[in-house]
Design a protein around this nucleic acid. Sequence first.
RNA 1: GGCCCUAUCGUCUAACGGUUAGGACAUCGGCUUUUCAAGCCGGUAAUCCGGGUUCGAUUCCCGGUAGGGUCACCA
Length: 479
Amino acid sequence: MNEENKKVVTRFAPSPTGFMHVGNLRTALYAYLWARRNNGTFILRIEDTDKVREVDGSIEHIMKSLKWIGIDWDEGPDIGGPNAPYKQSERLELYKKYAKILIDKGLAYADPYTEEEVEAFRKKADEEKKPFLYREYRPENPPIWDGSKPLRLKVPEIKSYKWNDLVYGDLSAGPEALDDFILIKSDGYPTYNFAHVIDDLEMGVTHVMRGQEFISSTPKYLSLYDALGLEHPHFATLPPIMGKDGHKKLGKRDGAKDVLDYPKEGYLPEAMMNFLAFLGWNPGGEKEIYTKEELINIFDIGRIGHSGAQWNDDKLDWINKEHLKKLLQEDLEKHVFVWLPKELQIKKLIPIIVERISKFSDIKEMVEKGELDFFYKRPEYLKEKLIYKNTETSKIITNLKEVLDILTMTEESDFNKDNIKIILMEIADHLENRGEVLHPVRFALSGLDKSPDPFILAEILGKEETLVRINKAIEMLKV
RNA sequence: GGCCCUAUCGUCUAACGGUUAGGACAUCGGCUUUUCAAGCCGGUAAUCCGGGUUCGAUUCCCGGUAGGGUCACCA
């Protein structure tokens, strides 16, 4: 089969050791986009070979995270597929089979030392300021491997490796990167180093995408492929995502959040996908807002960057806002309403809410601050608040009366913000200062120092309520 | 410490030898309907340093510096 015609197969292979954070999610996203771009296959595989660090519920949590952002898989532990099973803990016989092959070839052997002995070697090397290499202590006559001891690879050839990476280009490493690493642990489970190579081969993975922390161990994998006499897949190494300080790889310990915290805060999945895709990659144009389908059409491994990208909440908020505005044309209602108490679940409020938020959780803040109370509650306020700067009270009363008269004559059907604006501005423009009428009207309607403009307020409240509130303000001022 | 990767405005980045070094976020200023947002318009702001190669380097090479990664019976 010709290389170019080979169907693209990518995978995301997390270990179930806790919640998923955004760094992992980007790795998954790139692998996903590449598979979809090429009409290929995207596999979800669970690397549960570390029984000590495993956390219950992680697998469900990971799948939920992927689904939230809009990543679906063609094969995986929940849906099966031609390469089942998709949990490494259920594939132990397979690894044993490959282990036997290596043993028979004389390229794997049992590690006779205790952990303490190996630790002593390591310490000694450390004191001599030499890098520790197990292969320098390789036993002469290792015992037959019975599963109770770790099984190690015997590196077939100590040499420098050069290889090509789809992102970084030509990479290389010296022989000191090579060692007799453990294939199968004494508990019977394979190491990541062994299992992922076997599974990628068995599952026909064509493109291995992972973070650049794996660059330095790539020669080890290469030596394993050599030992097995097999070709390795394409490697595409992703640049790291740095934390907000810009100096450390983003990790759980420095505040990388659980992916599922973002929906709780009201971020849109498409916005998160858009943001994540652009963290370390960009298509080259000046367009920055992309839908999932557009990303799939344009994603290109060759345009992934080489240097670490810093996490930026401001940009995420902006991208979210842009996606929010796109949604505004459609069914924003159900998204917004879940953040509002019953009495505020009013369609008319949506535009003024959306223009003031970048993510849905901001609505919570608006509600808590009482910024929307004006709608169902006649405001309480001190009458002094109605006075614009040093305008005389009598003048304010006159102005409000004029507004009241004109709005009373306005037809119900014309009571919208555009008309109201024309009417109020007509009055305001004859005054020394527009605030002499606009401020008291706005304040009479909202009772807030900061609020939307009086025109939209009047429209939302409706003719009757608007007149009541203006009238009330006039009465207050008279006293 | 050994090995490896990286280096353009504060941040994400574009420019794959020739540009007034472009865009976006942030920031600052202005405008719009009094306020707060939003929106629109505009400003400030970058090629880490030193050598080469070249008619010409952000771009190619070497060195330095800085940052990051990795050296597990973790992935």
